[in-house]
Design a protein around this nucleic acid. Structure first.
Lengths: 250, 250
DNA sequence: CGGATAGTTGAGTTATCTCAAATGCAGTGG
DNA sequence: CCACTGCATTTGAGATAACTCAACTATCCG
């Protein structure tokens, strides 16, 4: 657990090729944390906070349901997932955590969570002291408004998941997942030519969308045969966005 | 839209047989709002707020996705549901709103929501002025902590729904729904002898649990045949809680 | 009585799952 | 360089949970 004293990288706007204030240059390829409006504020503010950086190998746990967190973790690099494990080996992935995402907004207020956070790729994340963050929140009412928006958005995403799982077909779900991920990565400037990094295994898609991995396989094969997408060496390209959106019901 | 000026019913503690500070005696059979810790505070505070009472007949909309809300509604009496309608007539119920529930925590901060709120029974609800409520929040840091807990709980419920829909069998889901509703009503003192008011139609259960109404029917018939529950004239009784919990996976 | 809403039951269909086995691929160690 | 292991993907075959359609019954309410 290396600890960096204070973040000295507070160089200007986070857009374009500038680096994220949350992550020093040598740790981060792109700046993502800005994608949510709220983060503009955090970005400026976090330079004043103490934080520490951690790296976790693919497949390793970042946090378990029992763990106690005195710090709030934010992902700088890599993909993670937030999931719940049920008896019988069943698992439901509740969200994929992309660079710039706070791992769970609830951790801003509570030191524990009932979810497992697992790294999908190698993940670097930075943790901030909760007490300091809360202090910051109480001092700046603006921040609170932004936080509430962030929270509402997080809630809307889980609700959307419930809707997908409850009332949409397998095709629809998988198409939506792909489109959503591309949209989220797009906001981070991590999409080029409708192509994105795609480290998910088929069983991740299955556990996220409430399907069996075998069925996910057949769906993906079918999507490829129909010329909708292409998956190649960890990258996914959308070949026919119009048709894919139609299937997704958008 | 009748409007009552100020709530004059601020009589003592909300426990026991006393009446809820939020709802005057003649509108409410029992006091429920206290079940969440946060409401203890609201109860005392809301006597100072202006509010108005509305009544809506069963099946009628309380709010539509497009509606603009300057006020935050809280249910005093009756059951409602919060749902999203999809193309193709599909519908996902995201939560049942019971007496004492704020209709959606998000409405504290945002004037619109993407959900339909529909009365299941006749519903009385009271709306509070958002600006005043927010003022109150900013003045009392304690309230904010309570609010965050409330919010985390709401998030956990939606997440639990997603888990149920994604990774649990139909039996499991329906058993869990029944147990959860009884637990929630129990906290409000609305359960006697494992029996509760149960105004849900089978299609409500279906839309909440991502099933077809016919399948729900067969499940309920089977539950009854197995001596697990009894449904009679709008009341549901759990006859064999141990077995029902086993099916629910608890 | 009639009309609306809800519940029940049967029969047949289908989306999705489970089990099983084959293939490919990437890393490891001799 | 090869055998070996671990993981992911693919494909087949059969099972089943849940769905759809359709008809019948019950209940409520004006």
């Amino acid at each position: 657990m290396k600890k960096t004293a204070t973040n000295t990288d507070d160089s200007g706007s986070p857009q374009g090729n500038s680096l994220c204030a949350v992550c020093p240059a040598n740790e981060l390829n792109l700046c993502h944390a800005v994608i949510k409006a709220s983060w503009e504020y955090f970005d400026r503010a976090t330079a004043l906070l103490s934080s520490s950086v951690h790296t976790v190998a693919a497949r390793n746990n970042i946090s378990s349901p029992a763990d106690w967190h005195d710090a709030v973790p934010i992902v700088c690099r890599g993909w993670a997932m937030s999931a719940v494990v049920l008896p019988g080996g069943r698992r439901q992935i509740l969200s994929f955590v992309l660079p710039g995402d706070i791992i769970s907004t609830a951790l801003l207020f509570e030191p524990t969570t009932d979810r497992s956070i697992v790294a999908i790729t190698e993940v670097s994340y930075r943790t901030f002291n909760r007490a300091e963050l809360q202090m910051l929140l109480s001092k700046r009412p603006n921040l609170l408004v932004k936080l509430s928006k962030m929270w509402i958005e997080e809630m809307a995403e889980v609700a959307q998941l419930a809707i997908d799982l409850g009332r949409r077909s397998a095709d629809e779900r998988v198409a939506r997942l792909i489109l959503k991920l591309m949209q989220r990565l797009g906001m981070r400037g991590m999409v080029r030519n409708r192509s994105m990094e795609f480290p998910l295994r088929q069983h991740h898609i299955a556990d996220a969308m409430g399907l069996s991995p075998i069925h996910v396989n057949r769906l993906l094969v079918s999507f490829r045969r129909r010329g909708l997408i292409e998956i190649d060496r960890g990258h996914l390209t959308i070949l026919n966005p119009i048709e894919l959106r139609r299937i997704a019901g958008l």
